[in-house]
């Protein structure tokens, strides 16, 4: 069903949470080495989709395949060990741990160091400055950088990022876009939930739009960005207004 160019494939995925039918048959693909943008209004099931892929909420029906292998029904830790990294909407920073301790938890080797760390610190110099600070004292943008750094300190096959631009100043969003470009150059496959159309347009290759627990559009980001009518139809906004 999922051919070789697809990193992740969802087929008719349903998720129930506390008796609510949140995902009602979600079907889409995440192509390898590309950035897939998951768009949609608030409350349509974007975060639920991410949590279901990660195994934090069990799907009740349907298939999720990573590299062709089924991962639905696996506990979160097994999904993570198969190379899926996750940056949740609230960033999931360990506030009482220092920046370096946050990174040490994400790194599977005993010590922290090596080229990978140098590369990450070059991407986010602020982390080095606040190395021994409790992560709870960082600003929102720095926390987001730490969350992303944590997710990629081990090379990952698939990076799930839930609304990285949420609540951040435009200048910080520009920095995040630069960082994600570097990850893209590294050929990391990314699935990103985003409300910020500017960011989505700059980073996205592939596009998936959700409404009411279902996928209502799947296609190329470039085509969608050039079609204001489709945008207002699916998202209720125009790209001009949001940039």
């Amino acid at each position: 069903m999922s051919d070789q160019t697809m990193q992740l494939a969802l087929r008719d995925v349903h998720t129930h949470v506390d008796g609510y039918h949140i995902l009602q048959g979600v079907t889409f693909d995440v192509p390898r080495h590309q950035v897939t943008m998951l768009l949609g209004r608030n409350g349509v099931g974007k975060t639920s989709t991410m949590r279901t892929i990660m195994g934090l909420w069990p799907s009740s029906q349907g298939e999720i395949r990573l590299e062709g292998q089924p991962i639905h029904g696996l506990p979160t830790m097994q999904v993570a060990r198969r190379g899926v990294s996750y940056v949740p909407e609230n960033m999931g920073i360990f506030a009482s741990l220092t920046v370096s301790e946050n990174l040490r938890i994400a790194s599977r080797s005993q010590g922290l160091g090596g080229e990978r760390l140098d590369w990450i610190l070059a991407l986010f110099p602020a982390l080095q400055t606040f190395w021994h600070w409790p992560a709870g004292n960082l600003s929102g943008g720095q926390k987001q950088m730490l969350a992303i750094a944590r997710a990629v300190i081990e090379p990952c096959d698939l990076l799930l990022v839930d609304e990285p631009s949420k609540g951040l100043a435009p200048s910080i969003i520009e920095k995040l876009i630069t960082a994600f470009r570097s990850l893209k150059d590294e050929r990391t496959t990314i699935l990103m939930v985003e409300q910020n159309m500017n960011m989505a347009r700059q980073l996205g290759d592939h596009l998936v739009v959700m409404d009411d627990g279902r996928i209502v559009h799947e296609g190329s980001m470039a085509d969608f960005a050039a079609d204001p009518d489709r945008q207002s139809e699916l998202l209720g906004l125009s790209m001009e207004a949001s940039t």
């Binding site: 990660m54 934090l56 506990p75 979160t76 830790m77 993570a80 060990r81 990294s85 996750y86 949740p88 999931g92 360990f94 506030a95 009482s96 741990l97 301790e101 938890i105 994400a106 599977r108 944590r150």
Partner: peptide, 16 residues
Amino acid sequence: RAGVENREMVESFGYN
């Protein structure tokens, strides 16, 4: 310490 703060996140890093 991390688990006391956020258990899900520790699981998301692949720990049991």
